[in-house]
Design a protein around this nucleic acid. Structure first.
Lengths: 290, 290
DNA sequence: GTTGTCATGAAAAGAATTTTTCAGAGTGCG
DNA sequence: CGCACTCTGAAAAATTCTTTTCATGACAAC
């Protein structure tokens, strides 16, 4: 079939001479702003071209398509080909590693996760969260699940250096009520929860909200139930060629946030880091003396 | 109207938490290969997502559109905008955010780190480490510094599920000698140490080696002093557009190792995971009864 | 002037799509 | 365990789209 390899645009051009007045008018309209102009219904494009719908049907059949739906299907394929990323395949990573080695398969997956996650993250959300966590009047509370606890700890460790008034909730949920007791309105609870979601976190989030705390959730593409209670949610792609989920992209977001927060309050942070350096030095001396 | 300025993708993301299971499934399907996946009829996209057409209608209305045709009209506009603007399609992940936004600068840096690290990592080294850590006769000890402690914990948490005989060293170095006391020849000490290197880790590594332990080090491109004592070393690129170093690529290597190890002993691991599931279930029951 | 051919669109018929209704399945909660 | 609730898709109803039919008008040939 002639249509198979050629683009719709090509087909129109090659048949242009054989078209009647109204059909030429329609063809012009289609080629103008091609291929988007052909996305609508037959009624729409007929109106846009100032012709009747039977003219459209007659023309697409004359061009070799089975009918208007067939014509449109071809157009959709072309749009897809135009849009879908030309950078589809990146060059191989480790030159000395076979393409099937776990390192390379993992790298493929992670890059894909990163790309998909970033298209999904709203920069406005990111900026809001950054400024929320920069506000030193708000207390910060970090909590994670069995696996994600390490991420919560990582985030906490950095924030503890950058600003005061930060708390890491213990892994054991039995101690959580006491933390909630101390939360004031405006405090922020940062929750890490990826599948399989932990039921206790929902209770914690509910209680925290009742205390007037804002909630920020890092979760996966399927969204933890705690996300429904959250002010802001980061949905991260976590799938890897592994029996385990990947936390790499989540850590990426965390690190970017750390930088954004630190940057917005650099003057104060600088002082704190200096002081901290001094404290480390003293500790070392204590040990030597002791 | 809220929909006016935001993209359909944004709208989906911002409503994602409020979506039900089938709707999330549909949203995923739409966002996958967005926006082309939404060009067809309601029947088509419902089939592709594996949901019913009423679900599609309900979701688009929930998103704030008047109906499916309205939803699709917005999508068409976006396709048009994407196609007629060649810069927009250049890099999809950047299209959502200005090129200078911290998220994009971070992404660039991380991809660069990943590429550089992978060209530097020998797959033979990787495989040796994986088989070393798969050996259940060897005890495993994990330790990290102030910042990298979270990475050590992350690695440990996974390995603890996969195999017995794993230990996480406390953050406090004063307890370390007792761990060394328990090490036997052939045990493996996994050290995370990136700048600024912690002096105590060298003492620990030396003592461990004297006990006949093998040492594996995760460090940065400048190499921690403990690397000299190590059997295998992973030198990871850690530079980010930040005042802090990035642990993303280190975590990447850790996760790839976890998968490699788990894979090599899958039969045994499977049993352990089943048992673990059962234990979790019991814990839940205990709580309910208690 | 008549006749035949062709192009065109109005309108009807036919075929789909979209929306609504409704009942069953599942879930949470007391 | 039972109740209330929400979610979900099958099926019907409503709507819109696509195709066909057909009448009209333009134009060329005789």
């Amino acid at each position: 079939m002639t249509v198979a390899s050629k683009t719709v645009s090509d087909v129109i051009h090659s048949h242009f001479g054989a078209l009647t007045r109204a059909e030429k008018q329609l063809a012009e309209s289609l080629l103008d702003n091609y291929p988007v102009s052909g996305l609508g219904s037959i009624t729409t494009i007929a109106e846009n071209a100032g012709v009747s719908t039977p003219t459209v049907v007659r023309m697409v059949q004359k061009l070799g398509f089975k009918g208007y739906p067939d014509f449109q299907a071809h157009l959709h394929q072309e749009v897809e080909a135009t849009i879908s990323n030309p950078i589809a395949k990146h060059d191989r990573w480790a030159s000395n590693a076979p393409g099937t080695h776990i390192l390379n398969r993992f790298a493929d997956a992670i890059i894909g996760n990163l790309r998909q996650t970033l298209t999904g993250v709203d920069t406005a959300t990111f900026d809001s969260v950054a400024s929320l966590l920069s506000d030193r009047k708000r207390g910060l509370y970090f909590v994670g699940g069995r696996i994600t606890g390490a991420l919560a700890e990582y985030f906490f460790t950095h924030m503890q250096v950058i600003r005061p008034n930060t708390t890491l909730l213990s892994a054991n949920s039995s101690g959580w009520p006491q933390y909630v007791l101390n939360m004031s309105a405006g405090d922020v609870l940062i929750i890490f929860d990826i599948r399989r979601y932990e039921q206790e976190l929902v209770s914690l989030a509910t209680a925290a909200r009742n205390s007037g705390a804002e909630i920020i959730v890092f979760t996966d593409q399927w969204a933890s139930p705690t996300a429904k209670l959250a002010r802001h949610t980061f949905r991260v792609q976590i799938e890897a060629p592994s029996a385990w989920d990947s936390s790499v992209v989540t850590l990426f977001i965390v690190e970017a946030l750390i930088e954004a927060i630190q940057n917005s309050t650099w003057d104060e942070t600088k002082e704190r880091m200096k002081t901290l350096e001094g404290l480390f030095e003293q500790t070392r001396l204590f040990r030597k003396l002791g």
